[in-house]
Design a binder for these strands. Sequence first.
RNA 1: GGCCCGUUCGUCUAGGGGUUAGGACGCGUCCCUUUCACGGACGAAACACGAGUUCGAUUCUCGUACGGGCUACCA
Length: 510
Amino acid sequence: MENQRVRVRFAPSPTGGLHMGGVRTALFNYLFAKKHGGDFILRIEDTDQTRFVEGAEEYIINALKWCGIEPNEGVGFGDGPYAPYRQSERKASGIYQKYADQLIASGHAYYAFDSSEELDAMRKRLEAAKVAAPQYNAVTRQNMRNSISLSEDEVKRLMEEKHPYVIRLKVPRNEEIRFHDIIRGWVVVNSGQVDDKVLLKSDGMPTYHLAHIVDDIEMKISHAVRGEEWLPSAPAHILIYRYLGLEEKMPKLAHLPLILNPDGHGKISKREARFPVFPLSWSDPRDSSSYLGYKEAGYYPEAFINVMALLGWNPGNNQEVMSMEEMISLFSFERVNKAGAKFDPEKTKWFNQQYLKKKSDEELAEVFIPQIEKNGFHPDKKFAAEVCRLVKEKAHLSDEFWPLGYFFFIAPDKYDEQVVAKRWNANAKSYFEKLTEAWSNATNFSHTNLEAICKEVAAANNIKPGEIMQMLRVMLTGVAGGPALFETAQLLGKEETIKRMESALSTLPV
RNA sequence: GGCCCGUUCGUCUAGGGGUUAGGACGCGUCCCUUUCACGGACGAAACACGAGUUCGAUUCUCGUACGGGCUACCA
């Protein structure tokens, strides 16, 4: 057991887009697997046919790919020795039924024939009686219709009549269940808190509780890493392993802390979030709602993943910006926190900025060019890269390049009013006329030369540079802020620069 | 309500019986600078509360409060 090969799985159900909570779970599985040279498996838990969402599975696969956390085995990533990896397909082999039957045979599970109306009635009854925890359990099952409360003949008859039934786990009334969690240590729960979980549904499909255990065993999973929301059902899972005689072989458990909303409360949710919660944009075919993804919002996957990793985990060395390789080598569950982490969108932007700064101008241009084209221009690559060079220090997200550098493509049609009010007058006009002429005559349109000429002309006219720089910027770009002024002029080029200056001179009233 | 899990600056966190409780984001001031930004310097900012153990608790124990999760023939 100790020397067992590390095999972990990410096992989402295809009920919608994979959001950041899921990505984080997948990431920790991935990091752990890579750290130990093990396998990372994608298993699709599609046992609930009523919640199947078209496109969800494909989304999950694409999201993992974009994030750079690719399983080496599983749906969409190639079969390993334990295919198939969709539970709906695994069912065909009768594997879940087999394990359920084994539990029936050993007396640890039973048939239950109750309708949903009967179950509702039972809960209402218990609530009315002020029972603290209304549930189908050792006490209440005596009053329900199942193979424990009913006579053998009656059960036989119901089965022969094909009366719908489920198989439930027979949870003992009062027994201490202890289990070890790698992150939380020992957890103790009394079985009285655990209900008789449905193992096999009336449609023949297993529930999560049965299916994940069967598959984890069959797929030789060494560690079950999942979100904290599973902690309450872990005792039931322990029981299932135990009754199956598999307790020795069960995966080690690690329950990850949840990612919480930044302000309000609760675990992260797509509904009210004012920031992306999905890695890729996701459109829900059921209600045609759609959500912007990190990718589409201008984030780099490395930055996104870096942030996800640091939500609940830290390497213990004050290092924050880390490559995947570094994270892998530093990762351990011992350094995973127990407490939930509130997500900070601002810090996520900062992380993206860190990665953005490291990109070459050419790499930046690759994402910038589509933005430019979307606005109807067809720049050459070199020019786009130059704009990126001038503008990148102001950008947090790659989709900010256009708002930051649009004036390299579009000549201003209006000018910052505050600057005009303050700096535009007859004196300034006369200066800029001279400057325009001087620059027109310049044979060298380099920014250093432009600056020299500008200051020369200013000195000759008894004007301090501070008085005209801002106005010059506005004449060239229309706005008061932007990249280095003379570099801007140089990149604009002589023809365009002069044109814009002349245009401003003729447009602005004195 | 019941059960489970948790609680260090606003946020992510390091630390851990004796520390000036460290870092990062954000925020503020200053420097650099034609602007914005980048960069740099500095600063404000935390051990939820109450008992107990101890020479000494932020650190260990127990309670309380608060937060989160679960409470389906959903995962």
